[in-house]
Write a protein that binds this DNA or RNA. Structure first.
Length: 143
RNA sequence: GCGGAUGGCCGGACGGUCGCGGUGCGUCCAAUCAGCGAUGACGUAUCGAGGAAAGUCCGGACUCCACAAGGCAACGGUGCCGGGUAACGCCCGGCUGGGGAAACCCAAGGGAAAGCGCCACAGAGAACAGACCGCCCCGCAUGUCGGGGUAAGGGUGAAACGGUGGGGUAAGAGCCCACCGCGGGACUGGCAACAGGACCGGCAUGGCAAGCCCCACCGGGAGCAACGCCGAAUAGGGACCUCGCGGGCCGCGCGCCCAAGACCGCCUUGGUCUGGAGGUCCGGGUUGGCAGCUAGAGGGCACCGGCAACGGUGUCACCAGAGGAAUGAUCGUCGAACCGGAGCAAUCCGGGGAACAGAAUCCGGCUUACAGGCCAUCCGCGCAU
RNA sequence: UGGGGUGUAGCCAAGUGGUAAGGCAACGGUUUUUGGUACCGCGUACCGUAGGUUCGAAUCCUACCACCCCAG
């Protein structure tokens, strides 16, 4: 009785991720990074620092098309209120910029900077993120 | 009006646009004949951080583990008395002591005649007292002398064995007296802590218990990352089935021997290791999912009891439930602190743009952080009457 | 979120109520042509912060601050 059910649910779980990515081609579906290993993988990949924050990004190369975004605010950022506000402002940025310009199959991580991420003018942060994404997508080899 | 004391409350306001989390309702989408219609998507309605959500310092609820009951011991905690409470180390009322001109505030505030211990340095002496300098008497060898009396004076110390005055004396001393302090205390008031106190005692009892301790009371341990359920991949464990052994042995198990292979750089010798494959099921179990998870010793209002903390009755509403963790972005109007200017002043003009801080199982407290504002009561001063 | 621990000189640290040891480093001196080594000397502590108990606190009590560790 049980064996056929298990195989069926297993196939369903595998195919569940691909259909939404294929069906929605205009705007990218964004999911949130949750695993610590994913954050560490992004930390080893391309980086682009700005006055507002630090952007890390990488192509997963696992066949799926989902764009995923993670947010990091360490204790250096400040107390809990400042850490949460930094994450929320970065989340708002990601909703505007990464949803439009993010490349399929990539993971992005935004790292807060003490002070700047909370206090910087939002319009400047939008420009910072667009610029940073260009640099992550087209890395310049530096000596 | 100014200065102060106490208690309580608020913690930027309103609106637009784009977004986020929960719940209700509606629509859409499936493996699979029908039924039910999850996750998800969209629409709509509604709700969506705090007075400290914090520190994690106490007390509980809840869950698991341990456990016959009671006593004793050990360990930890609490500590004036009475009350409140589910409970508390919390709160209320009172007492005592201290601070303040007052309103009022502060206090780990039981026991030091149960016992032990400690009190450095200084000082003669530091705790059933003692005698360095003194003071006084006597003796003679008349002095840097000996014996005795004394504890008033000096000096040391945080602390020196009642204080002040008088009498008394060789000098002194509660030796005697007055007042104060101290100890005991009939009796009176109070539930009690305690207060008052006739009378008695010439003074006995230095401090430290946030030193050991004694007395009284309380306490089993761990924590929602507790606990319960479902359970992919990979590796390993157990049970069973099928196929297959290069040869030999036999107890027939996948056991032993030989051959074979790999390694010890290579060769010889020698040594070590390997000696099956596939399938099904079971149990443990990580990522993950579900649940615990929010209706409560809860809140608002009214009345009653109580000085109060609080309790009782009635009534009203449902008021966050996330999980790399929901509150954000932006615009407009108004806006406190603060800054600049004008004015005798009230005030006006311009700038400025809100403190501490974010739920994580849930309650009751404590503590700490906090821009600014509002209300009530009380005390003192000033003015008017 | 819960549980536990540590703060003493630049570093490592001893110190259970009475003037806060010791070592390394630093600094100065001697020896050496110079450096190193060796020897001698020397300073540095509001004992994490603030209150309290006590005559007296690094030590005892209370509150706070900072840092570290453990548990999925």
């Amino acid at each position: 009785m049980t064996p056929p059910e298990e195989t069926a649910t297993g196939q369903e779980a595998e195919t569940a991720e691909s259909p939404p990515a294929v069906s929605l081609s205009v705007t990218q579906p964004i999911s949130v990074l949750r695993k610590r290993a994913d954050f560490l993988a992004c930390a080893r990949a391309a980086k682009a620092g700005t006055d507002s924050f630090l952007l890390q990004g990488r192509a997963r190369d696992d066949g799926t098309q989902t764009v995923r975004v993670g947010f990091t605010a360490s204790k250096k950022t400040g107390n809990a209120v400042l850490r949460n506000r930094a994450k929320r402002r970065m989340r708002a940025l990601a909703r505007e910029v990464i949803a439009a310009k993010g490349q399929a199959g990539w993971d992005y991580v935004l790292v807060a900077k003490p002070g700047a991420t909370v206090s910087r003018v939002y319009a400047h942060m939008l420009a910072d993120l667009e610029h940073a994404m260009d640099r992550v997508h087209n890395p310049k080899p530096r000596g």
